[in-house]
Design a protein around this nucleic acid. Structure first.
Lengths: 204, 204
DNA sequence: GACCTTCCATACCGATCGGTATATAGTAGA
DNA sequence: TCTACTATATACCGATCGGTATGGAAGGTC
């Protein structure tokens, strides 16, 4: 619906702000403060629009978050998909770890992972948000597990570990890295974490 | 100061609630909802006391959180210290991982880790809380690093990894486990994570 | 120009936030 | 019994929360 705005005949007064720029600004606010920590005043001032404009363009705070999270997955989590194309299971892990460092240490973006921040408990107002973020992560995890199962079938997998177990282990490291980034770890520290994880990674 | 209450002559009207029981209840609320997610109404109703009683006994919300966090470290994080007494570096890691599972899967307690929940971003009201929780964790991390450095000096440490790097790697796994517990992972899943981490752990 | 639609700005809504003033109830010592 | 002191209960405070009603202002079509 919103994506068609540019093509629409535009009957009334055109909006004075770029909806994509505003959404990107909203994403930064959510990313930095979490869903409940981001107040409408924070959002509007950072997006450079007024409250009614926000509601006209995005519905309400929850819809705005969902669209911001879509953008986040589309732009920041895209590396997840491409990482799965690596030729080996170890390569997949390495790409995931290194890309995660880049995400967490982006120059303009907040530290940490929006998914992790949003899925941990705050008030009960955000319970539905929490549920959806968790559900989305489950589907992402499933893709990684499937990739590791394929590796096992192709003979490209360490012995003594199940694909699902190693996938969840890798995800735990990624989530731990997100926590450390969120509390202020430097890029060097995160890179050291990646190196250690790769040294320890089973099989060759 | 509060610890002396029982010995004090008790001049005025005695309080009608057990301050330790109330603090334990407050801890559960913070643990479940985070600092900002725990409203005074949540706290008082769960503690079974009124608002003025809370302020008279604990100061304010922030002081209450600090005392609850003290209790948390004293009762729930005590395993950290005892884990460091394990004879080998690997034993330290194993104890830490297994104890963490117990913490996250306690029957009566909320899931996840109060430290992780409280150190991730929410509104700016909690910024000082965040800072203190992070600072406390740094000191805990330092103890683990020192233990691994001792292991290195004793010849009980895998080659090819630095003590500090392996410590931070282990902490990342523990934090990742806390995240997974917080979003609803089962005990079996967490135990699988422990097993995988131990399989992968370097050296023997 | 008239007209219609949409956007922007201000000011406001009820609810809830953390925190407190006030008055009453209860206990110890005089 | 009176006084000193403290806990409890109720009701309230200003500030902020997410969300909206209202009144113009700015474009498009005719």
């Amino acid at each position: 619906m919103e994506g068609l705005t540019a093509l629409a005949p535009a009957k009334g007064r055109p909006r004075e702000f770029d909806i994509d720029v505003a959404l990107a600004a909203a994403l930064r606010v959510f990313w930095q403060r979490g869903y409940e920590g981001a107040s409408l005043s924070d959002l509007t001032s950072e997006m450079g629009i007024t409250r009614p404009s926000l509601y006209a363009a995005f519905g309400n705070k929850e819809m705005l978050f969902r669209k911001a999270f879509d953008l986040y997955e589309r732009e920041k989590m895209a590396y997840m998909k491409t990482a799965l194309d690596a030729p080996t299971a170890r390569g997949v892990a390495e790409r995931l770890l290194r890309s995660a460092v880049d995400i967490h240490c982006g120059t303009d973006d907040p530290r940490g992972c929006l998914g992790v921040i949003s899925s941990l408990a705050c008030g009960q107002e955000a319970e539905s948000i929490r549920a959806e973020v968790i559900a989305r992560r489950v589907s992402a995890e499933a893709a990684l597990i499937a990739r590791f199962e394929r590796a096992l079938a192709e003979g490209d997998f360490p012995t003594g570990v199940e694909p699902g177990a190693l996938a969840h282990y890798l995800i735990a490291i990624l989530q731990g890295m997100a926590v450390q980034a969120g509390v202020g770890a430097s890029r060097v520290q995160l890179e050291q974490l990646v190196e250690t994880s790769l040294i320890v990674w089973p099989g060759r």
